[in-house]
Simulated scan of single mutants.
Amino acid sequence: MRDKEGLQDYRFMPEPNLPPLIVYEDNASLPTGTDACQAVVVQKIREGLPELPSVKRDRLVQTYGILPEHSFTLVNEDGLVEYFEAVLKATKKEPRKVIGWVTNELLGHLKQQDMSVSQSPVSPPALAELLDLQEMGHISSSVAKQVFQEMWRSSGKTAPQIIHEHDLGLVSDTAQLHSICQNIVDSHPDEVQAIRNGNKKVLNKLMGLVQKETKGRADPVLVRTILQEKTS
């Protein structure tokens, strides 16, 4: 039995209505006058493909300086990369600070209520506005989280509206903070003595007590300065 050796052995017949396709690596290698219907440019096809997950993760890490594990979280959740980048376009806050809000606060709320990113009641511009208020020192980090929760519950309300309605603005009145800090210092002599003996970490406890007294509204920088003066 003889082997099949040529096209005629396979009963191959060319189809006149299907012209041959010629594959080119890129546009530079495409000869002038080539019929576009007969040319397949690999570069053009490659550029039309969506961004691969591994490529997207590398881009996020290199562009925004976030941790690799954060890039995995963003890529694995449908629509989260787009949400994250939309927030970045609208806020002055650094990417490494924004990522915490997106992967912790936002994603945490979404998971609790079994919602997708597209169903979030807090839009990227709304979150960006909240982060800018915190960045500019109008509210503390703890208050920012309270406002976010209220924004989540009260869909449509902006961060400034909630801050105004609930009087959540940062307390920066020096006289008022001096009075509060003095009361805290007077009622915690052991902690004050520990600070004076060199245990500076105890100062954080006093700061926490001041924040508790002001419901998280005290200016932390000003509070630290006042407490340092009163415990020195």
Rank of each mutant, 00 (worst) to 15 (best):
D186F: 01
Q161N: 11
M207L: 13
V61T: 12
S142D: 12
Q146K: 12
M207A: 09
I99A: 00
G100Q: 04
L127W: 00
T103K: 01
K93Q: 12
G216P: 06
K205W: 06
E51D: 11
N17H: 13
L88G: 04
P19A: 12
I99P: 06
Y24N: 08
A28Q: 12
S232Y: 07
T174H: 13
N183P: 00
S142Y: 02
N76K: 13
Q119L: 07
S29C: 11
L88H: 02
D186Y: 02
S187I: 01
K92H: 09
G79Q: 03
D167F: 10
V185Q: 02
K89H: 06
R153G: 05
K44F: 00
G198D: 10
M13C: 09
L110H: 01
L131S: 05
K56A: 14
L227Q: 07
T63H: 08
P19H: 08
A126Q: 11
N104G: 11
G208F: 02
D78R: 15
R224V: 02
V221C: 02
M207C: 10
A159T: 05
V42C: 02
K97L: 10
E47P: 05
Q62R: 13
V23R: 09
I184T: 07
F84T: 04
Y24W: 12
I163K: 05
P95W: 00
T231L: 03
P53G: 05
G169V: 08
D58H: 10
Y83W: 01
K200I: 13
R46I: 14
Y24A: 08
G208A: 03
P95A: 00
V41M: 04
S141V: 11
P68M: 07
V122S: 04
L170N: 09
Q228T: 13
L18M: 13
G208V: 02
C181Q: 07
Y83H: 07
K89F: 02
A86T: 09
E94K: 13
T214W: 03
Q193T: 11
R57K: 15
S120F: 05
T73C: 03
Q38P: 00
K212V: 04
V41G: 04
L170D: 05
E69I: 13
D35G: 01
L203M: 11
R57A: 14
V98S: 00
E213V: 04
A144K: 00
H70P: 06
M136K: 15
V171N: 10
L107F: 02
L88W: 01
G137M: 08
E15P: 00
S141R: 10
T63A: 14
P53H: 07
G65R: 03
F148W: 05
G100I: 02
H166C: 10
A86D: 11
T32I: 08
A128L: 06
K97F: 09
K89E: 12
G216R: 05
N199K: 12
R224E: 14
E85F: 01
H164S: 15
I163R: 04
L110S: 01
L21T: 10
G216I: 04
P14T: 06
K205T: 14
W101S: 05
M1K: 12
L131N: 03
S116Y: 09
K4S: 06
E105M: 10
I162P: 01
Y10T: 03
G137H: 08
K230G: 01
R57S: 10
L130S: 09
E82M: 08
